[in-house]
């Protein structure tokens, strides 16, 4: 098995494990609490509006906004790590059919693995900081994934070399 292929298959398994362990942590310690908070803050907001208390309504909706922001990113991280892991494994199995040089295949598989790790990590870091750094990590990760996938698509589309 070539190094590029091994990188994709075992990297994919590792990433899937990371995504599942993270998902388990999230399901046990964060998801229900966040969903509960979202529902409660929304109900509090509307009830406060009904009680003609716009300030309390605004506070509750601010809380809803923060919780929804975090919840969406937690779900995205879990889904993207596992989805990308599955893609890595499947591409790893098919990687012998990519008609590119070994060096290029190695570059593409390393780029895809690194991008698949960094992109959801950047999204996760956004739940700790709203600054530019986590967004930059996510952008670099997704750019790596896009460029690597484009290269692999070209490699798959090329007709097999004779012999």
């Amino acid at each position: 098995m070539s190094t590029a292929r091994r990188l994709l298959i075992f990297g994919g398994i590792g990433l899937a494990l990371l995504g599942m362990i993270y998902g388990l942590w999230y399901a046990v310690f964060a998801e229900h609490q966040e969903l509960d908070g979202i529902g409660k803050s929304l109900a509090t907001g509307f009830s406060a509006a009904g009680a003609r208390d716009p300030r309390a309504a605004e506070d509750a909706l601010q809380q809803y906004r923060e919780l929804k922001y975090t919840y969406d990113r937690h779900v995205d991280v879990h889904g993207h790590w596992i989805g990308l892991a599955m893609l890595l494994m499947v591409l790893g199995i098919a990687f012998d059919r990519v008609e590119l040089t070994e060096r290029m295949k190695m570059l593409l598989s390393a780029g895809l693995l690194l991008g698949s790790l960094l992109f959801p990590l950047g999204v996760l870091l956004q739940t700790f900081s709203h600054g530019v750094a986590p967004q930059a990590v996510a952008v670099v990760g997704s750019a790596l994934v896009i460029v690597s996938l484009a290269g692999m698509t070209m490699g798959f589309a090329r007709a097999p070399r004779s012999g």
């Binding site: 907001g45 509307f46 509006a49």
Partner: peptide, 10 residues
């Protein structure tokens, strides 16, 4: 949502 709640309060 804020607009909705402010409208309801008013």
């Amino acid at each position: 949502l804020s607009e909705m709640s402010a409208g309801a309060a008013a």
